[in-house]
Design a protein around this nucleic acid. Structure first.
Length: 497
RNA sequence: GUCCCCAUCGUCUAGCCAGGUCCAGGACACCAGCCUUUCACGCUGGCGACAGGGGUUCGAAUCCCCUUGGGGACGCCA
């Protein structure tokens, strides 16, 4: 009988859900799904100083939006502090931990001295060798004490394990200091809590970032001291910026938060698909996956060893985030079923206050066709309310380039376009074909290239410099709107005085 | 300073474990052409990498060593 597969995502609620954390959650989720396991959400809120309710909500909202579901939790680490204290006591009782009376100041001084002399900065073990009498005396004197784990010193060799991503990882006992597991105020620390919780939650696989590599060696010792089975570890590569620095809110701002992508009109699965490709590949050329395909294709062994770079250039006018992320998102935007896109666009239109209830009533068909026509060139849901705004509202912005190149460059258009509008008004059959015929006849009559009235119309009707076939646009926008907007052509000319 | 991890196009990566089919494949980005009234759609093509040095071998992107480079950890944070 094989062991039950149980994974966990344990964020600390000290900020929003950022894309690195989301990536960790995604990989854990994929592995759980693939192996019919469970994913546990555990909020590691032991750092009372920095944990916030808002952050907890942000993390849960972010995961939910991404479509990352969990089977148990959220549990809160603070709810289990008795477990943590009991474990610490157990280690103390079994002589696998000891009280340390060194003050923060003393330790800080030693650390700085060591750094200054370019010596190793590990704890020197001062309190490890205190006699029972000395310990008692210090306790009676009311000295505050932390609890340190007693790293075995009588062993040679390494504490090692087989990492599913990196292979065999080892570190010699000598290189591990007697680390603190309980604060002097009695609050247990991450290294201990995390292990105790993972044991209690019967976690079988731990997938986390390589920044935890050195924690793992120490935590292995805790598992052993507590007599618990060791889970399988997989350390995934970190995500760095172009300067090869860890991405963080502090230095990168909102661009690393999941919420930002939501606000920018990303499709949740588009983001998931991009993120999973950052440090993992299926081994073949596939890059676009449905949820089922991704779960099927996923494996720990195919996670990369090397860190990957989030290709984001601050201030890039063309790409507000990694171009590949946008490209993948655009792919989904163009290929998803209209029925799936429609409610998402509705959300955008509602937020922009240009939603019309009729889009779900008598204009439903028109609305769906509009999405089909316009999404061809779009990258995010936001484009429906920016580049595509004129489909839904007369109150749209004119692209300065369209104004300059397709309108102001040809001053006659101020007269011609209203005239063209009057002809459109007289048209009985307002189809793309007859609109095209009308435009071409008009251009021939004025002895100019058809592109001039056509592109001028595009500017006045859509505010854009490009878009779908203009004849389709005429027909789809409808006679009434086309005539009205062309009649108002002069407002664009006046605006430029 | 100590310990650990990593190293293929600008970016994400395939190939590496089981050396030859790799003068290194795909994607994004970029450039050019085509299509088009227009276009950040589409199509075609182009540019572009095995960090360096030794070694093993008939043969190395693949195995070994060194160097260099990058990252991480070294908290009474998580």
């Amino acid at each position: 009988m094989s062991q039950e597969v149980r994974l966990r995502f344990p964020p600390s609620p000290t900020g929003y859900l950022h894309i690195g954390g989301a990536r960790t959650a995604i990989l854990n989720w994929l592995y759980a799904k693939k192996h019919d396991g469970k994913l546990i959400l555990r909020i590691e809120d032991t750092d009372a100083e920095r944990s916030t309710e808002e952050s907890i909500k942000g993390i849960i909202d972010g995961l939910t939006w991404l479509g990352i579901d969990w089977d148990e939790g959220p549990y809160f680490q603070t709810q289990f502090s008795e477990d943590h204290k009991k474990a610490a006591q157990q280690l103390l009782d079994s002589d696998q931990a000891y009280r340390c009376f060194c003050t923060k100041e003393e330790l800080e001084a030693k650390r700085e001295a060591a750094l200054a002399e370019k010596r190793d900065v590990k704890y020197d073990g001062t309190c490890r060798h205190l006699s029972p009498d000395e310990v008692q005396a210090k306790e009676e004197a009311g000295l505050a004490a932390v609890i340190r784990f007693k790293v075995p010193r009588d062993r040679s060799g390494m504490v090692s394990y087989d990492d599913k991503v990196l292979g065999t990882i080892g570190r010699s006992y000598d290189d591990i200091e007697d680390f603190v597991i309980v604060r002097s105020n009695g609050k247990p620390l991450y290294l201990l809590c995390n292990v105790v919780d993972d044991i209690r939650d019967r976690i079988s696989h731990i997938i986390r970032g390589q920044d935890h590599l050195s924690n793992t060696n120490r935590q292995l010792l805790i598992y052993e001291a507590l007599g618990a089975p060791i889970p399988t570890f997989a350390h995934m590569p970190l995500t760095l910026d172009l300067q090869k620095k860890k991405i963080s809110k502090r230095s990168h701002g909102e661009i690393v938060s999941v919420q930002y992508y939501r606000e920018q009109g990303f499709l949740p699965w588009g983001l998931v698909n991009f993120l999973v490709l950052l440090g993992w590949s299926p081994g073949d050329d596939r890059e676009i996956f449905s949820k089922e395909e991704l779960i099927e294709a996923f494996s720990l062994e195919r996670i990369n060893k090397a860190n990957s770079i989030f290709n984001y250039r601050k201030g890039d006018p063309k790409f507000f985030t990694d171009p590949k992320a946008i490209n993948i998102n655009a792919h989904y935007l163009r290929t998803m079923a209209i029925s799936e896109i429609a409610p998402l666009v509705k959300g955008q239109l509602l937020a922009a206050e240009i939603w019309d209830e009729a889009y779900e009533g008598e204009k439903r068909e028109w609305f769906n066709q509009t999405l089909e026509m316009s999404r061809e060139r779009f990258h995010t849901l936001k484009d429906f309310t920016t580049h595509g705004r004129a489909w839904f509202s007369d109150d749209f912005q004119m692209d300065p380039k369209a104004l300059k190149k397709n309108l102001l460059k040809h001053p006659q258009l101020e007269e011609w376009l209203p005239e063209l509008g009057r002809r459109f008004a007289a048209l009985d059959d307002f189809s793309a074909a007859s609109c095209e015929q009308l435009c071409r006849d008009f251009a021939a009559e004025k002895d100019v290239k058809p592109g001039i009235p056509i592109n001028g119309s595009r500017a006045v009707l859509t505010g854009q410099i490009k878009g779908p076939s203009m004849f389709e646009v005429f027909a789809h926008l409808g006679q009434e709107t086309v005539v009205r907007r062309l009649a108002e052509t002069n407002k664009w000319f006046q605006g430029d005085e």
